[in-house]
Design a protein around this nucleic acid. Structure first.
Lengths: 326, 326
DNA sequence: CTGAAAGCGCTTACAG
DNA sequence: CTGAAAGCGCTTACAG
């Protein structure tokens, strides 16, 4: 099974390599007759273009990177599949490869050098943290990059996010409409935009809520529920800023003799798979992850096509998924 | 920021392009003095090799594909993160890219042509189904491939799997040692090796178990639990062949007035995140997914390095994770 | 150990 | 619209 080159296709079709190349790349400026001859030659020889040779001259890798944080934070992330699926939808039809880079601490620079040496045309950065220098370096180098989620500090970078505070408000309104009178929230980390925004939106709607701090993990949800019961025994509505925290809190509430949702309504955030496997099933705020991922890919492709494209931010609206817990 | 080429490094170091190339690639046959000169030139110029140019001559892409089934089956897959993380651990230090291909029906051929045109050096195939022609085509073409999980039909292909029947046996032994007398199992699909093997191993240990069929989904777990209660009201031990089915079955058991684990012990399979968010937490059979993924990557790299490497299969042993449900 | 030279397979001005 | 030719940046026999 030897490799078929353009040279051979051209020979079979009786045209020059240049013409063969034009029809492979869909240049409109080829005579019908020759085009057909080349097309026949392509299928009869089973020709596939050598991507490396093409890249060498076009200076495009036709590959983008999806840079994820290290395993500790990502292993349990319920959204990875949806993100990949969304990005794939826009990238695949264009023949662009999705390169997954799961980075440990200090390894994110890998993406930078892949970009610099032309091995990647651009990257989508997920879950950066405030100390991460990569986004800044990327911007300074003028390399195409899109952030998943608003950056920690304001910076001129394209990002896609969900309206986190609107999500918090949705949760608050739900608990209010359920008739809850003593409402509490278990927050996400307050040094993350996500954590802060969800809380802010929630407090806009339920200003007198009891606030207990958490960090999005299940363990934090359990600890917070204990604290909540002690501080506020008559609590009848809880907004957990992540589904994971909600799944931690519910068993604690149950064990304290409180029924969910009869005694305490619980609303989560994420609509992760945990929302469905928990008992009762979780009412939760949904982010359209796959759609957001599609948009990130589109934004990145736009930047790659036009290096001077303006910095953009796209914010999606969350929705409430009503199930049994609240 | 213009691109630095080997040519320039050579000029700065005062050597030929060939010599510069040798030190970049770590060929041992370079004089100490020249080597140092080149290394200095590399860092002073910030040189990064152009991968496309290198690929063109080495005929290696330095990229492998991870081919996953379409979103429907993968979105909820709890293992994606672990698989990626395991593969990354072996692939990254070698500078090899991990290309994620999430395939819809009929799209798996993409991987094949990427392989043929040299854009990928090999692929790891996850969750093939029996009708999938790709594994066969890959083998026939002599292209490097590793399967995640035993193939449906016997074929000469390298794969990595967990000892599924040993896992079923582990679950059976657990229920037995708990003193259960009326034991049942909710099976996976019996046209999948995974489903069959888990059942077989379980029945080896609990030959008189009541068997209800499922398909690994949560819905199937709920339906099966209803059937089970009807057919066998005194059931006191259940092995669900997936955690998802277990999380579906438990609430049904609860609603029927049976306490888990007091009245009915439940053991799952997968040690997925669902096992932790369910109440009570699930006792389950664990597969060392990340280790298995590492091994797949290693096997693939071996095949890429040596096309005549013998077909191998590596089978890992599962373990029982005891929590509260059984 | 080192360098001059060929060649990997493609795209793209440039002429015609 | 078409083709001859240059060139993308690297690696690797081949001589020396």
């Amino acid at each position: 099974m030897k490799r078929v080159t353009l040279e051979e296709v051209a020979r079979v079709a009786g045209v020059s390599r240049a013409t063969a190349s034009r029809v492979v790349n869909g240049a409109g400026t080829v005579d019908e007759v020759l085009r057909h001859a080349v097309e026949r030659a392509i299928s009869s020889t089973g020709y596939l273009p050598n991507i490396a040779a093409r890249s060498l001259v076009t200076r495009r890798a036709d590959a983008i990177g999806l840079v994820l944080p290290d395993e500790h934070r990502m292993l349990g992330d319920p959204h990875l599949g949806s993100v990949v699926s969304g990005v794939t939808r826009v990238v695949r039809p264009r023949g662009i490869h999705l390169v997954l880079m799961m980075t440990g601490p200090g390894t994110r620079e890998q993406a930078l050098s892949d970009l610099r040496c032309g091995r990647l045309d651009g990257v989508i950065l997920v879950h950066t943290d405030p100390a991460d220098p990569v986004p800044g370096q990327l911007i300074r180098a003028g390399l195409p990059v899109v952030l998943a989620g608003r950056p920690w500090q304001p910076m001129p970078i394209t990002y896609v996010d969900v309206n986190q505070s609107a999500g918090g408000a949705l949760a608050g309104e739900r608990l209010l409409s359920l008739g809850c009178r003593r409402i509490a929230t278990i927050t996400g980390p307050q040094d993350m935009p996500t954590g802060r925004d969800r809380l802010r939106g929630f407090l806009d709607v339920v200003p007198d809520a009891v606030v207990v701090h958490g960090d999005f993990t299940r363990q934090a949800g359990m600890a917070a529920a204990h604290e909540l019961i002690a501080r506020c025994p008559d609590v009848d509505g809880v907004f957990a800023a992540s589904d994971l925290m909600a799944t931690g809190a519910i068993p604690v509430l149950h064990r304290s003799g409180r029924k969910v949702p009869d005694d305490v309504a619980v609303v989560g955030f994420d609509d992760s798979s945990a929302a469905l496997t928990c008992e009762p099933e979780l009412t939760t705020v949904r982010q359209p992850i796959a759609d957001m991922a599609e948009e990130m890919a589109r934004q990145l492709l736009r930047q790659i096509a036009d290096r001077t494209a303006p910095v953009t931010s796209v914010v999606f609206e969350p929705s409430l998924v009503v199930r049994s817990s609240g």
